[in-house]
Design a binder for these strands. Structure first.
Lengths: 202, 202
DNA sequence: GGTCAAATGGACTGATGCGTCCAAAAATCA
DNA sequence: TGATTTTTGGACGCATCAGTCCATTTGACC
């Protein structure tokens, strides 16, 4: 383990955040700092040395993960037929919503919405809001190019995202099992793309 | 206040549940029994006399509210054009998702998903699952009648519900403001119905 | 007016958990 | 090796809260 003079070990910080992610995911916001410390094989005091308080720890955790949420969501080839691009988009969105790991963190945010509302807003901005804007841009461009006919891109993007998440979001939040079979996700993504395109075809 | 011999006052039970709904909605699952007792203008002991323990209180609360969630959702005239029926359905669904009061309870369920998973499942069954089945039945009937072309009614129903909830569900869960302007809801419901019908027209 | 179930409220237990303190140990650097 | 910083682990204070206990009061019913 390398060490930087006068600085607190970065590697240990990461280990603590990993452990916090796991334990909070399992036990929810009620998980104790001690449990996180045990999981990280670190003393409780060390966590306080690194993060100051529980709220700061959770903020750091969310900030770190939040950038990963929409990272895989990129609009690839604009030259393809819209259905192909939409299928790829839907596939990524459904995978995100089916990712129990990502959602365990969102569940923590929901639990803490009362005590840390700014965190909830940050997650919303980084997640759904960014996603919607990205999809809306794509839809607007396709409409411009005459390949689709979307009058209200933001609204349509929200419909698209809603079709992708369906009940999966609800189930994930409730801690229920979510079907993450790759074949079924792929098939579902195709259907979403097909139906959505039909709803907004020129 | 009427009183029945040998029975615990029903009116007081209702008052307790109302107070619990309010306080839990504001403070989340962490709200204390004492706070609920204060709000209900009742002693803590009375709550225990009525419900036994906190978990039972929350179960009673959810059970009472859950029946209200899908109560307004009825498929009315099958003689109308599908778009009209779909608009009415969408309107009701959007109103439910925009109802902060109803969602404060769902937030409590999310918070308690770890400690009372069967409750989460019950809410899912009573809410989204029932809704989906109801919509799916309608879509199947319309397809049978040749007015729509829905190959997979359950899947389509989930798309429909997803379009209605959009980001509202997420925002409500996060404790963020949700636009509940009746005019905008009505307009949104029409758009959902129009686009959905286009996606599944014969 | 007397009876009895229910309500009250206040004290109490036990558990949990955040955050602090501190002296000893370990790791790092010079 | 010696100086410095971090880590450790355990004890501790403080607060909150679920749930219990109980003596007293209230109020509906006869």
């Amino acid at each position: 383990m390398p060490r930087l003079v006068g600085q607190i070990d970065q590697v240990k910080s990461e280990a603590i955040l990993d452990a916090a992610s796991d334990v909070l995911g399992e036990r929810g916001l009620g998980a104790s700092i001690e449990a996180i410390a045990r999981r990280a094989a670190v003393s409780k005091q060390t966590i306080y040395n690194h993060f100051g308080c529980k709220t700061a720890l959770i903020e750091a955790l969310v900030a770190r993960r939040v950038s990963h949420i929409t990272a895989p969501l990129r609009v690839s080839g604009a030259a393809e037929h819209p259905i192909e691009t939409l299928t790829a988009l839907a596939q990524t969105l459904i995978e995100i919503v089916s990712n129990v790991r990502a959602y365990s963190l969102i569940r923590v945010t929901v639990q803490g919405a009362g005590s840390m509302p700014e965190l909830a807003k940050a997650v919303f901005e980084a997640g759904p809001a960014t996603t919607r804007a990205l999809i809306a841009d794509y839809l607007a461009a396709e409409t411009q190019a005459g390949r689709m006919a979307v009058d209200d891109p933001m609204e349509a993007a929200e419909f698209f995202a809603g079709m992708c998440s369906g009940h999966r979001q609800f189930r994930a939040l409730m801690g229920m099992e979510v079907n993450a079979d790759p074949d079924q996700i792929a098939h579902l993504a195709q259907t979403v793309a097909k139906r959505f395109f039909r709803a907004y075809a020129p």
